[in-house]
């Protein structure tokens, strides 16, 4: 999180309603918070809406902000909660299926696909900006209900119970979604990052459409 020289002074100024403090808190923390909002809602317009609502909630709740918490952490949580609310209100269509990205099995329980080692350790993928962006875009392609659970559990490291409460799901449903989201992400990464021949091979065997 970005640091400001004197966060305590900024908090005091916010509580006192000093104009400069509001602009500072938006400019200093807003960029990162906008990126967080975008992870959840995916489109820029919705992310801007989320950022605006989140800041307004934060300003309203400023009196209750405890000095013991970090301002950036507190704002981050408000943004995530606001983004989840946004996702709930815009979810009109039935959720996209990710079955095509899950493994298939023969009747005797064996995998249908043969998984070849596509030999790109995480460190190698992390070295290049391009491949890091590919990973993010694969996460973006997961349907809302799966992406959200993956972000909250694996990236935010919230507990299963906390995610269940936030998303109004049972803990079992959270576990199932997390597992499916990771499996789907794994398939997408193989499609996007495996060397051409191996990736294609896997796609053909899995009967998955190319992107």
């Amino acid at each position: 999180m970005e640091e400001v020289a004197n966060e305590a002074a900024l908090v005091v100024a916010l509580k006192n309603g000093e104009e400069w403090a509001f602009e500072t808190v938006v400019r200093v923390y807003g960029g990162r918070l906008l990126a967080v909002a975008r992870r959840y809602v995916r489109c820029d317009e919705d992310a801007s809406d989320v950022l605006q609502s989140a800041y307004l909630s934060a300003f309203r709740a400023m009196a209750h902000f405890e000095g013991s918490a970090q301002l950036s952490t507190w704002l981050h949580r408000i943004v995530v909660n606001t983004a989840l609310m946004k996702l709930r209100t815009r979810r009109r269509k039935p959720e996209e299926s990710i079955d095509d990205l899950l493994p298939s099995f023969q009747e005797d329980g064996h995998h249908v696909e043969q998984f070849s080692d596509w030999a790109a350790p995480a460190d190698v993928i992390m070295e290049r900006r391009e491949t890091r962006q590919t990973v993010r875009s694969c996460i973006d392609r997961l349907p809302d209900g799966y992406r959200t659970v993956l972000l909250l559990r694996d990236i935010e490291e919230r507990s299963t119970q906390e995610v269940a409460d936030l998303m109004r799901l049972t803990t079992t449903a959270v576990k199932v979604r997390l597992h499916r989201a990771r499996q789907a992400l794994s398939t997408l990464l193989r499609q996007e990052l495996a060397p051409e021949d191996q990736g294609r091979n896997v796609r053909q065997q899995a009967g998955i459409k190319g992107t």
């Binding site: 938006v26 960029g31 906008l34 605006q52 992390m126 890091r132 993010r136």
Partner: peptide, 28 residues
């Protein structure tokens, strides 16, 4: 592959990895 997917997901969103832009002036 599964472990690598989890690991990569965590690492691409680590603090220094995600591109961050300033909040546009009109949004501020």
């Amino acid at each position: 592959d599964y472990r690598r997917a989890v690991d990569l997901g965590q690492r691409v969103y680590a603090h220094d990895e995600e591109p961050v832009t300033d909040v546009p002036d009109d949004l501020v």
